[in-house]
Design a protein around this nucleic acid. Structure first.
Lengths: 242, 242
DNA sequence: CGAACTTTTGACAAGCATCAACACGTGTGG
DNA sequence: CCACACGTGTTGATGCTTGTCAAAAGTTCG
């Protein structure tokens, strides 16, 4: 079907999860010119305000997008897993409106912006798959806005854990209630708009209720239904195919 | 150049603000099949969870997108002005992940989803303009997430007022520091994640500092620089052409 | 003119932030 | 292999921002 050994496979896997693509389209995607790079932990990939000429694809590890307020406070916008296109957004508008950095060691591929534009123009279905990817990404940000704007600390953290659990299963980086997720409580605070001290107290409450186990490097969900209830979580916004 | 009398003009004006389109592309857009409807205040256009087969275009008036938490709390996701495509997002994913309703009386046009897909496939530049529109829309949501997650009440409200002021100028519905904006303090609270009582106190503080005048139907910015400073506002995220 | 909505005010409570200190684990260099 | 530094997690005391509840005053519109 398609060259099984291309390093860009994780991207294709993610796109075809929601957009069917034929052999020509798949080959065109896998043959996109790219540059592979291995990055360490907390390496900046894109800085807000910079001109972007490449789109970055995450092949392994974890990354996050964020913005910084004038006060210095950081708001994480999304977390990213294997197969995610990290800055389809920034690629489209040229000047990055947010920053991106790795959370862990990560393998990434840089694709030239123009190559993406060309393949989208040549294969409309590919263009639609990019648009859909971008819209699903937007749906997750919208849910985060609801999370941060209207839910309390316990709900916010529970909700985030539910999301990451499901997305890791979809990405094939976890098979169930236990998964690697190397994130500090401070970063968890940046994602949910809570200080690290309050994150700590909230996580302890979740542990005490028997919902989760959690260390700096991995998470175990002990009570999936309970955690969803605690987080007011409903998976519809992830727009997964049935 | 293009038929000057098409009711879809405001959409074209908005798209061409950031994406140059040639005569063929412009005509194809203006000739899109559509159904014109005049709606009253607080009429729902799209309900979260519904299957979407049409894309709604706002020709006059104001609208907003929002989500509702399990507790019943509402989070507004964005506000919309003349020319905005209200659910490019929902059109792409079929099942709406958020709701849309009018804030005021409004003229809207409904475009069949498939007609948009077809015109985007036939004219790649049109497809790119849709993608860019969607990405700019996403950039605004990301800024709102920063706003709600990391700024205090006064900053949030000031920031929102700055955004609406600039976008109204860009949309041609205002020419300066004074503009119609029929929004209640409760709705302002939904947009910023604050209760209406606290919005009231905060608005009074902004008035007392001589930054704004504000009623239920319009806003006057008395001190533009001061309001931007109070709101930690920087326009880059709107991605306006220079 | 009255009904419904919106703004305003006050008293009080709660959730979360802030500040500070200490404990723990982990990796690194001497 | 130990010592140490550094990042992270944990705990406690305190206070501010914001939420909650309730009621009154003002506004809009049929």
């Amino acid at each position: 079907m398609n060259s099984p050994s291309s390093p860009l496979e994780p991207m294709l896997a993610k796109l075809t999860r929601h957009s069917p693509l034929n052999t020509h389209e798949r080959e065109a995607l896998l043959k996109l010119p790219h540059r592979l790079v291995r990055l360490g932990r907390r390496k900046m990939i894109v800085r807000e305000g910079e001109v972007v000429t490449q789109c970055c694809l995450l092949l392994s590890g974890f990354a996050s997008r964020y913005k910084v307020a004038g006060s210095g406070a950081m708001q994480m916008l999304s977390v990213h897993l294997r197969g995610d296109m990290l800055d389809l957004q920034n690629s489209v508008v040229e000047v990055a409106d947010h920053s991106i950095e790795t959370l862990t060691d990560a393998d990434v591929a840089f694709l030239p912006r123009q190559a993406l534009i060309d393949v989208a123009a040549e294969f409309p279905a590919v263009g639609r798959s990019f648009l859909k990817e971008s819209v699903i990404d937007g749906s997750i940000v919208r849910e985060w806005l609801l999370n941060v704007g209207q839910r309390n600390a316990k709900e916010r953290i529970s909700h985030l854990l539910c999301e990451v659990a499901l997305r890791q299963v979809a990405a094939g980086t976890s098979e169930g209630p236990q998964f690697d997720w190397p994130i500090t409580q401070e970063q968890l605070g940046h994602a949910t708009g809570i200080t690290s001290v309050h994150v700590n107290r909230t996580v302890q409450a979740l542990r005490a209720e028997g919902l989760i186990e959690m260390t700096t490097r991995n998470v175990t969900i002990l009570d999936w239904k309970g955690l969803q209830a605690a987080g007011d979580f409903s998976r519809a916004y992830l727009h997964e195919p049935a």
